[in-house]
Design a protein around this nucleic acid. Structure first.
Lengths: 229, 229
DNA sequence: GTCTATAAATAGATAGAC
DNA sequence: GTCTATCTATTTATAGAC
């Protein structure tokens, strides 16, 4: 991985102000956004190392050099995709946690938030699975905080329910794993399940996202309400 | 990815009879086995594309050319690692499913089998997460059957429990996700959780593998015994 | 079975014109 | 902001001696 530390690219636009008024008005979706989405798809399908800037540029119907103009490097592009994903998830979760609702409703909202993000961004579950496997090598500090905040907000919801005498005190990480594990697994494994079904196995039942989410709702509530064990 | 289709390597030993009596007697663990383990570690940490045959050979303290002598190619080596992993899991699960025990015990055994394999082979959860994300691109037919068999055996256990009037009929894929999702997530995320804890977050509780497995036991049984919802 | 080159291709990154 | 051409390092894979 080349990419020297010494760099100072793109003088004019600031790092966060994305679709400049020009770009937004110009093409169909803007070069930058097209690159962003094409890259997310390639990273999801092939991983960081497997993704390829030539292919990303081609898929975005954009010149390869634009990647280095709009982003610093392949890995900076990847980090931005990661960051955007977790900013979206954590802000959605925050909306739920801040809403004035019962602990039960907040818990349901938390689950729905994870599921909604996973469904709205098809590249989120695969990329996240890969990043977990890689130990978060590419995750920067800001994103790490977003991730920690997600678990933190779940912990707060649980505490609130316990304080209200409606939840049993259960380790937040246990609850988190019971929610995020099955949901991400379901969305990330779509392609593989299709392959398994096709290849002889008739037993691979067709479950829908709604069924998975509903199941996680029931199980998680049962756990926190002490109806399990 | 080069690796032409035309090839016919290693005439003498058959594809499955690994540690030839010579190799087994010779070095500390045998060149082939050392390559196998070093490769599993690299594939787990960096993914298929990110892994590197030079680094694998170096880690195994073996000449790089040995990879191509003992295995056909990088991807053949990877496929063999995948295959070995799932052969081990499915055969362990089969042992449980075939044992004469109550449905409840078999279910517990299934969960323990997954957890035991994940714990015994640290590279299994990360590699599996990545392969899921990749849609099973590298999974060959035989391995696909092993994977399908694992779900199939869980389905059989559930059916047996239902027939005995002790389980509610719940979709096997839902049950499978509730078991495998949390367990794999826990083991695969060890490195990342360490990073999150270290980086300011004091909320990241320390849970152990035993706690996760015990929790999955309780939840799964509760689901199948109709104590949820 | 093992090792030393080395071929051959790929891929990240950049310079510089427009 | 965008495109062409190209540099350079990396990497899979193999030939061939021992």
């Amino acid at each position: 991985m080349p990419e020297p530390a010494t760099r100072s690219r793109r003088p004019t636009p600031s790092p966060r102000s994305r679709p400049s008024r020009r770009a937004a008005r110009s093409g169909v979706t803007g070069t930058r956004a097209r690159l962003f989405h094409a890259a997310a798809a390639d990273f999801a399908a092939r991983g960081f190392a497997g993704a390829n800037v030539d292919r990303i540029a081609r898929a975005a119907r954009v010149n390869k050099a634009m990647i280095y103009y709009h982003f610093r490097s392949k890995s900076a592009l990847y980090r931005e995709i990661l960051g955007e994903m977790f900013r979206a998830v954590s802000s959605r979760v925050r909306g739920v946690a801040d809403a004035g609702a019962s602990p039960e409703e907040k818990l349901r909202g938390f689950i729905d938030a994870i599921a909604a993000e996973a469904q709205a961004r098809p590249h989120f579950p695969p990329i996240w699975f890969r990043e977990i496997a890689e130990g978060g090598t590419h995750v920067d500090e800001a994103t790490l905080r977003d991730i920690a905040a997600i678990v933190g907000m779940l912990a707060a919801i649980i505490r609130e329910g316990v304080a209200a005498g409606r939840f049993q005190p259960v380790d937040p990480l246990l609850v988190h794993g019971g929610i995020v594990g099955p949901i991400l697994l379901f969305f990330a494994s779509a392609r593989l399940r299709a392959r398994i079904e096709q290849a002889g196995a008739r037993n691979a039942a067709h479950i829908t996202a709604d069924e998975v989410v509903a199941h996680v709702h029931r199980v998680t509530l049962a756990v926190l309400q002490g109806r399990v064990s």
